[in-house]
Amino acid sequence: MSEKIVLTIDDLTVAYQNTAVLWKVNAEIPTGSLVAVVGPNGAGKSTLIKTIMGIVPKNFGTVRIFGKELNQIKKRHEKISYMPQRGSVDWSFPLTCLDVVLMGRYGHIGWLRRPSEEDRKLAMEALDKFGMTDFYDRQIDELSGGQKQRVFLARSYLQDADLIFLDEPFGGIDARTEEVILDLLKELRDQGKTIVVVTHDLSSLQGHFDYAWLLNIHTIAFGRPDEILTPDNLAHCYGGTIHSYQEGSS
């Protein structure tokens, strides 16, 4: 049974100042799936997403989204969405929550034109989905960590792209909210979207995610969570070992 593959990665290698951050990474992500990327700190998970998005240059290897290279994709805002880690943005910027969420529509609005009432309405709806309606005119630097996270999620949600990358979206969020968000992500998945989530939280994998991707500079394992989250694999991924380029599986 061949599902449609939305994202293909071949031998992706990224080195930064002589340090290997990603080494010969291979993967195929099927369309309409909810994928978790897990691994220890420094495993290259964020770099992986950034390289796919073209933010970080790659040393060699290929990345194909919808069968095309990144720069061949037209109307990117409809196809790909990216929610960065919370710390990568200047939170002291004078913006309200609504301003930030509205940015999810900017791709649609285009250069020079202003957001319309319709855009604002959609943005408020997105805020509502994440329980942030009352905060719409609050300055973002007044928000707690979890609230900032939800604003980011709302923005990504509003953008309504087919392939969504979320980098550590559950940081600073309580378990209940995390459940709510995971349910939302499943809703999106059921609509045919593909969602790739970088996360630390191994416990959330079972029962929520379709696929788990164990990464530590290169792919340790990829498959259904219950199949690949074996103690052996986990030790290999997290256990402080050097990863041989020879993928020994004996």
Partner: peptide, 21 residues
Amino acid sequence: GYIQPQESGNWVLTFKGMELV
């Protein structure tokens, strides 16, 4: 430049290190 520490306290081979090995 052959090995590099990670945040978790582990050491890994660098790009250069992997090539040499």
